[in-house]
Amino acid sequence: MMDRPCIDDLDLLALADGFLDDDPARKAAIEAAIARDPEAASRLSDYRAQTAALRTAYAGALAAPVPERLRAIVEDAERTRARPVLRRAAAGLVVVAAGLGGWLVGHGEDDTARRALLDESYRQFVLRGPEMALSGEGGGAPERAISWIDDEVAIRLSAPDLSSEGFTLVGKRGVRRSGDQLVALEYRSRDGRAFSLFIAPRWMDSPGPIVERERAGIALAYWHDGPLAASIATQLPRAEARVLAEAVRRAMRDDTTAPPAGLAPEFRPLRNPVGDVMADGLATIPGSETLDAVPGLAPTTFGSN
């Protein structure tokens, strides 16, 4: 018994538009059926003529030079469009800083961001540093991506792998304060050394040096690189903290999932933003409540640089 496929208009259209090229069996069956059906053959011929005429008619648009006014929209976007979005992250830090005592006067956006992050790092470290992080290694694998959630943007990065320095990630959590956000990562070594790494979004084209501070026996170090600002807080000696900061910065730069230096972060749509919850469940880690929910720790600022 002959297998005669039923041919409808869509089969003919698919054939005319080349959509059956990946299905040679179906294509051959339909072509064979068309060969026995003059009406179908006529329609196919017409559809093919349409497709050819359409492609010819509009082919010139592909070859034509792109008008400057269209090119400019994309090329000028960095100055006219992207920065307001990105600045919001840095501006968030400014707001936090101002809210912490209004001690910032005219040192520029980056000083402001640095001070705010260092100050917040100290506060977070005192409140719940590595000693209070989950014990063991259940805090998350280093290769596990962190999703950084804002109401509008998300930045993906991986927790830096510091196993070469003897440190294991033991905890991570999100901190939201006054609309600003930090990711706090807690590292600990087998011999009991520990530090906290804080990462915040920012926007500056050029990387910056590591800036060190010490306060009440806690060493802090700050740097920024591409779209991220980071700081560490630890009770290790300052010299060791410095070496550690350099190692962390190297590890973050080596992270192949991070955007190239000098490029803005990769933004992803947020399908289900839920309050303060980080996309990878950072907030589910016990003790991850934000500072807003922690009994007050009077903010103390660092002296000016």
Binding site: Y58, A61, A64, V66, R71, E78
Partner: peptide
């Protein structure tokens, strides 16, 4: 974001063709 801009710029000719058809 440079990369996204570059990717968008590459699509301009096709967008013009589609817009012309519309």
């Amino acid at each position: 974001m440079q990369e996204t801009k570059w990717l968008i710029a590459r699509e301009i000719p096709r967008l013009r063709r589609y817009a012309l058809a519309l």
